[in-house]
Design a protein around this nucleic acid. Structure first.
Lengths: 346, 346
DNA sequence: TTGTAGGCGTTATCAT
DNA sequence: ATGATAACGCCTACAA
């Protein structure tokens, strides 16, 4: 902190200029009109002594901070950071400060951070991703949960506004896309987890997609880890590499639950001597920038990350400013971004 | 905000239990001893009515917030987000909350955010990256700048502690590495900019490295953009692709100023029919995760991102807690991570 | 147009 | 072991 010891207060400035604290306050905020002459004198003194209003005191008095908190599991995940960008874009020019806080997928950390950020420190929260369990949060915050918006975080009780991808539908359409390109043996690689609802629905989208085209689910090339995966690239790579060590390639396309898994799988095919897409087609999920950087560049399913952020920010803004308090659940559509990793077969 | 209207205060709880506000405060903070019996009663009431201390008021009174602000240009850049992880790891268990704020490479935004975060809102700042110009910040904060730590942000006057990579040296060593692998025609692709000091020193490291081995600087394959590059992949790709349209490949290795540029360049070589590393070797800078995902995986220069964060956090922690106020400049070493994109030639 | 004083919710100091 | 009360620094009626 700056000048913590001998912090200059509004009273000091007032005394120096020979006016009351209220006048200084008004000169700075523009809340009430101040005679130009006095205002100039005040501003000059403020400038000279580099007086900075204490934002904590202001917040305590006004009961708002102008800060929006973004809570997300991991800043390192490009999905989340794109959403943040969308939020910032939307809030641009509204004089809000957004701060992002990482929970590292740990709900204990999430709670303890929430306590610190806690009541009054931020005007609103946007939760991006993370596990569904809001119960712990409710035991802390109680039932009065206002100005919360969820992005891609499922929550059973419809108590919050949220912006989500229908991931079941998204994966289903990916399967459709593959089928339309002539593929009938479609593998799936990912994980399944009770903690996180999203993967479950992705898997069920896969099943649905197969169904749409009367395709068989073949357990032989269904690669499903039990739990959340830390090193996705390694998982994708090793799973496929090992599979091909012991089996011949008996599917023509594979759908990866995340782009990184897809990239890892792609490399494993290549290292085992299979050309992508000539021998196998690969489709990812997410359209993170790395999917473009692979060779061949990977076809994937785009999630409208920026737009999710923008919409979440808009909803929160309206809620904070009492323009609307309706809780709404907004579904966004995905789209296949076709690049080089899919082959059309007759 | 929760319960903004009818927020429960410490006085309410005190009244309910029949004690003074001070006792409630002490029961919650553990600052002074409170008889077990009363304490239990207090805690029960707190729990029952879900009373949450107002952190703003607490901060005003204690003159600290327990919040560390991390200011960085872009959350989307994996370099920065890794540094953040390092900071968080170090601060883990110290009961600090870290919040990260994006400036999007815009110094106006940086200043306005600093004002909001301003005096008293955070106990300390870590600036990661960004341009060198601290003058604007000084005109706002004045000369009394305490509890600031810089990470990879050059600053002429040695007024702050900072943790930095000697990028000149790093690039120089990359050239050495290439030379030791038998390369004598070494190209460089990147940019040069007066605004940002780092690229300058990178380029001079390149020159120095060539010098060490009595190699010629060949302007023909020196690719230097005038200004900072937005789409680095595209820049790397198009620069090399176009070059090869009009010239034959007359260098054996290329050093890219960033990993992404290197990945783009690599793909351009491949699309023009040159094998990497058989026809050209490529080395990147940064060791971001994408460098591992390319095909071939790219040899690059590792920056100790996590460690930078950890050290910065440690220095700041000591400063905030008055264990040390010495300003120190800490240089960290880089290391070549050899993967698949370099060929050893006789 | 400007000044005075009370309040925001805690913590800290000094009593008891 | 606990209470009363004055800070903390700002904002905002209400008054002048």
């Amino acid at each position: 902190m700056c000048n913590k010891n001998k912090q200059l207060t509004i009273r000091d400035i007032a005394k120096m200029v020979g006016v009351s604290p209220a006048t200084v306050s008004n000169a700075l905020s523009g809340e009430r009109h101040v005679k130009k002459e006095t205002k100039d004198k005040i501003l000059k003194t403020v400038e000279k002594y580099k007086y900075k209003p204490n934002i904590i005191a202001r917040s305590l008095s006004k009961k708002k901070t102008g800060i929006i908190g973004i809570i997300l599991p991991d800043i390192n995940n490009p999905f989340y950071s794109e959403v943040v960008k969308g939020i910032d874009e939307e809030l641009q020019g509204h004089d809000y400060l957004t701060v992002v806080v990482n929970t590292y997928y740990n709900s204990e950390i999430e709670i303890s951070q929430l306590k610190k950020l806690g009541a009054m420190f931020v005007d609103g929260y946007i939760f991006v991703g993370g596990s569904c369990e809001f119960e712990k949060i409710k035991t802390y915050f109680g039932d009065y949960l206002e100005n919360f918006v969820l992005v891609n975080r499922k929550c059973k009780n419809r108590q919050f506004s949220s912006v989500i991808i229908d991931s079941k539908r998204a994966i289903e359409e990916a399967v459709n896309f593959l089928a339309e390109n002539g593929h009938r043996e479609i593998s799936y690689i990912g994980w399944s987890s009770r903690e996180i609802i999203i993967p479950e629905s992705k898997y069920s989208g896969y099943i649905k997609g197969l169904d749409n085209h009367n395709l068989q689910l073949n357990e032989d090339f269904l690669f499903l880890a039990d739990d959340i995966i830390l090193n996705q690239y390694k998982y994708g790579y090793e799973t496929i590499f090992n599979y091909l060590d012991n089996n011949k390639l008996d599917f023509t396309a594979i759908l990866a639950q995340t782009d990184i898994i897809g990239i890892g799988a792609m490399r494993a095919f290549q290292d085992q001597g299979y050309n992508v897409p000539d021998s196998v087609s690969v489709i990812g999920y997410g359209n993170i920038s790395a999917s473009k950087f692979s060779n061949p560049s990977m076809t994937t399913i785009n999630l409208p990350k920026r737009r999710m952020g923008k919409i979440a920010a808009k909803v929160l803004f309206n809620s904070v400013n009492k323009k609307s308090s309706r809780k709404e659940v907004i579904y966004l559509k995905t789209k296949v971004v076709n690049r080089e990793s899919i082959k059309k077969i007759n």
